[in-house]
């Protein structure tokens, strides 16, 4: 059995006017030591998905249906106190906005120590500090900076410190939500290499959420493309890159410029226009139909079906035969 199994996960937000579906019937599973990338434009529901796994949705968000099984535990029905023990100890998270992920009035070291000592109350402070020092070595921050305040760190250091904290309790799964978006390209690359190396070394499962398909391609074994709350294409990295099937995936790929030219894009087309949140998410029909250059009458009348291209490569599109 896989480490993490997500079945039919549907997440919704209550707003003043309506209940909006943010993630619609998401299915995937993840083995120990493997990594999956979730790609999509902002607002497509990818962060929501990550938050739902840790049960950290905003107060108006809720899981409508579906199951999340992690190491045999049904995460969605776990009592709160047991869920608190799963968080960070088993599933850690690297946040989208590392700039603001640190409490500005507490020392960084204290915040990492807090994570360690919450999950291991027996550890002495000296031992815990020692662990932090090792982690800092791993992410290459000088140990004398441990007890600085967040405003004394640079952006890249904050991000690396977050990674150090994510590793502090040696979790089985790390959810990295746009961990490098706010950084410049050089630092971004360093951090990505770091994440990749650590993931491999410690045999951690990784869910990597990003809007940048190039970044995901560099880190993950598998890729899932998400559009308006639905996974529209999922497969191994090479498959999705070499034979992108869904028109949206192709649009995404063509808007991403490869530097090393490893992947050749076959179907050049104009970059994908952003989805308009004002339009209601049609429940059953393909969400991309209004922008899709290949949309046929069938797309407008029938909901799309999952097709298997290969046993590991699937796509949700009516055009594909």
């Amino acid at each position: 059995m896989a480490l993490l199994e997500v079945e039919n996960l549907t997440i919704a937000y209550k707003t003043r006017r309506e209940t909006a579906i943010a993630a619609d019937r998401v299915n995937f599973s993840l083995e120990r030591g493997r990594s999956v990338g979730i790609v999509g434009e902002s607002g497509c529901g990818k962060t929501t998905l990550g938050m739902a796994l840790l049960r950290l949705l905003p107060s108006n968000g809720f899981v409508k249906k579906g199951r999340v099984t992690f190491d045999g535990m049904d995460l969605l029905s776990l009592p709160d106190t047991r869920m608190q023990r799963v968080r960070w100890k088993r599933i850690a998270m690297i946040f989208q906005a590392a700039m603001n992920a640190w409490n500005p009035v507490q020392r960084i070291g204290d915040q990492i120590l807090e994570a360690i000592r919450t999950h291991d109350p027996k550890i002495t402070k000296a031992e815990a500090v020692k662990q932090v020092e090792q982690l800092y070595e791993l992410v290459e921050i000088p140990a004398d900076r441990i007890f600085d305040f967040p405003h004394q760190y640079s952006g890249g250091m904050k991000q690396r410190a977050i990674i150090a904290m994510a590793l502090a309790c040696s979790p089985d799964l790390i959810i990295a939500d746009e961990p490098t978006t706010a950084l410049d390209v050089i630092v971004q690359d360093q951090i990505l290499q770091k994440i990749k190396a650590i993931q491999k070394e410690k045999n951690i499962a990784l869910i990597f959420i990003s809007h940048d398909i190039g970044v995901v391609a560099g880190v993950c074994h598998e890729i899932m493309v998400m559009y308006r709350g639905k996974i529209v294409e999922a497969g191994r990295r090479e498959e999705v890159f070499e034979v992108p099937v869904h028109p949206y995936t192709r649009a995404l790929l063509s808007s991403y410029l490869t530097i090393d030219g490893v992947f050749e894009i076959r179907d050049k087309q104009s970059p994908a226009p952003p989805c308009t949140p004002a339009e209601p998410l049609s429940k059953e029909l393909c969400g991309y139909v209004h922008l899709c250059p290949h949309a046929s009458e069938a797309c407008r009348s029938r909901p799309p079906q999952w097709r298997e291209i290969t046993p590991t490569h699937k796509v949700l599109c009516s055009l594909c035969r």
Partner: peptide, 9 residues
């Protein structure tokens, strides 16, 4: 950072 604190368990 409140989210971080919660995620830390």
């Amino acid at each position: 950072y409140i989210l971080t604190a919660r995620a830390k368990g």
